[in-house]
Design a protein around this nucleic acid. Sequence first.
DNA 1: AATAACTGTATCACTTAGTGATATATATGG
DNA 2: CCATATATATCACTAAGTGATACAGTTATT
Lengths: 107, 107
Amino acid sequence: MKTSPKSKTRLLASVHETAQDLHNVGFIDKRRMQEYEVLCMQPIADYSSTRIRALRKRHHISQAVLASVLNTSLSTVRQWEIGDKRPSGPSLKLLDILDRKGLEGLL
Amino acid sequence: MKTSPKSKTRLLASVHETAQDLHNVGFIDKRRMQEYEVLCMQPIADYSSTRIRALRKRHHISQAVLASVLNTSLSTVRQWEIGDKRPSGPSLKLLDILDRKGLEGLL
DNA sequence: AATAACTGTATCACTTAGTGATATATATGG
DNA sequence: CCATATATATCACTAAGTGATACAGTTATT
């Protein structure tokens, strides 16, 4: 039973409704629902300064464009790549999306 | 000539390659390339505390789950919805993705 | 070759988001 | 009624985010 990327996405996206239905029918209590919810999330990998630069180069975009795509400032992207500052949680999430889905994932 | 969501996405995703090709063939100079790049980005709308709460409710998830999905802390999401703090740029981008693409856009 | 423009580096000081802890309130379910 | 989940409300600390500026290396145009 292999899970294709497509089915995996759909599974995760509909977990709440599914759990809700199960609860409504009486198969699981409400307390268990949140456990299912939390189970679906995997932690975001950390992005070092070199990884960020490599990721940007892979997509052939300048620091300015990356900043626009992530809705942040040019100054911030610079300091990420130099290693002066580290991306915040949401920023890491966006970098992860860019990494896995490409630019399309951020449009 | 109406642009379907699909074709629009593809257009934006391949702008760089297209512009690169045009430049290689000699149709446009390199200076114009970045203009095309910047043209593709539209600013992210602002999300008030009430809009954030409404967005979350629409997806039937708790503050804790929203925090996980955005890779931020529960404390932060709380203060967004109360109006104490405002989401950072990258956080707004993630909220925008959730708004337009649903939970699938963040997986 | 000289100049102009694009891209990235390097500081700086300031503002504010992000965070963890804790105490409290309010449903909601067993 | 009691336990739990969810949300509100502060508080103080840390660090990310930001804008400005000056400078350097590269590339394009004339």
